[in-house]
């Protein structure tokens, strides 16, 4: 019966079917097809989309070297002990000059390499500026549709502004380390605002207490937390003191689970998913409507002609854009 049915399945449906059954080669290739803009990748995604939305997605962001990968490694062990299946997407930067990349986050996670229930995939940013890669959203869907219980997303090493991860995950962990600037930093907008949980990593170092107080004071100034969730601050000590480290990771995982419960109990999960879906729809619209127009303009040399006009001050960017809009969108 199965065989008869499969005759009626398109190639994309078959691919999607294999991925749903957990086939790693098909899944990682689909992610690559999305990264490489291979035609057809989107149509496999269409078949997977109905099966997404089951995984819990956790995002980790923070400065380079803050210890994001090492924390993911420890959290994977923690959740594997509870028999959860795991997916992990690790993003590292692409060179703006050569397009090459060193994807090295995996080094910290290699003890899970052979575990069939842990699937780890590195992604290069390929020019995306928000801390993730353009393919990250779809890659999360792929791991989700594979049936992974928990999906970790590690951003590139971030500074202040890379907040894209909040649009793709249920819980954002901002990983900080002591000794990175004075207390005005804690007032600034951006990455500190997106945390659902603060982790002070390497908390055996000098300055941990000060950083804790700064974050704590920053949180005290918030009038009302969205959804009533005050982000907890969790100290995680040195990985070289294994017993204590494990204890801290256990506390961290309790904070993570606590946040998820909070989302579920207060009916906030729906809001997050709605926001994520809106972002995805926006992206899809942009790539479906804007991208082909841009491509056409480049191919026909229209872009260069417009740039020439602008350089000679014969026109301005706003008029040019309006002319294109009038031509294509009316």
């Amino acid at each position: 019966m199965q065989r008869v049915l499969s005759c009626f399945m398109s190639r994309d449906m078959k691919k999607a079917d294999k991925i749903r059954k957990g086939d790693i080669r098909s899944a990682t290739r689909l992610i690559r097809d999305i990264e490489d803009n291979v035609p057809g990748a989107k149509s496999t995604m269409k078949h997977l989309f109905p099966f997404t939305g089951k995984a819990r997605v956790l995002g980790l962001t923070g400065a380079p070297g803050a210890g994001k990968s090492t924390l993911i490694d420890a959290l994977i062990s923690r959740y594997r002990a509870g028999e959860k299946t795991i997916g992990a997407l690790l993003v590292d930067p692409t060179s703006p000059f050569t397009g090459g990349a060193i994807l090295g986050d995996r080094i910290r996670l290699q003890r899970h390499a052979e575990d069939p229930d842990v699937f780890i995939r590195s992604l290069a940013t390929r020019g995306a500026l928000g801390g993730l890669s353009k393919a990250a959203g779809d890659a999360i869907h792929v791991l989700d549709a594979m049936g992974k219980d928990i999906v970790f997303v590690e951003t590139v090493g971030t500074g202040q502004q890379e907040v894209e991860v909040m649009n793709h995950v249920h819980t954002v962990l901002v990983v900080l380390v002591p000794g990175m600037g004075d207390d005005v930093q804690a007032l600034k907008a951006g990455i500190l605002e997106i945390a659902d949980i603060f982790v002070i990593n390497k908390a055996d170092r000098d300055g941990t207490g000060k950083l804790y107080t700064e974050i704590s004071n920053m949180l005290d100034m918030v009038q009302a937390f969205p959804g009533g969730w005050r982000p907890p601050i969790v100290n995680v000590g040195s990985v070289f003191q294994p017993a204590l480290f494990r204890e801290h990771v256990e506390q961290l995982s309790q904070a993570i689970d606590g946040h998820y419960e909070h989302l579920v109990k207060n009916d906030l999960l729906g809001d997050r998913i709605r926001r994520q879906t809106l972002v995805e729809l926006n992206e899809a619209l942009r790539s479906c409507i804007l991208a082909p127009i841009l491509e056409k303009l480049v191919k026909e040399g229209e872009i260069e002609r417009m740039v020439d006009k602008l350089l000679k001050k014969e026109s301005d960017p706003y008029t040019c854009a309006e002319e294109i809009a009038n031509k294509y969108l009316r």
Partner: peptide, 30 residues
């Protein structure tokens, strides 16, 4: 580093890897 400068995406897994870890990682990373 040279592969990076040649425009490749390079997955670096570090030292002390078993052949089993290497094969599994190569497959996961496509």
């Amino acid at each position: 580093r040279h592969f990076r400068d040649s425009g490749f995406e390079v997955i670096y897994t570090g030292c002390h890897q078993t052949p089993e870890q290497i094969a599994a990682s190569a497959i996961q990373e496509d």
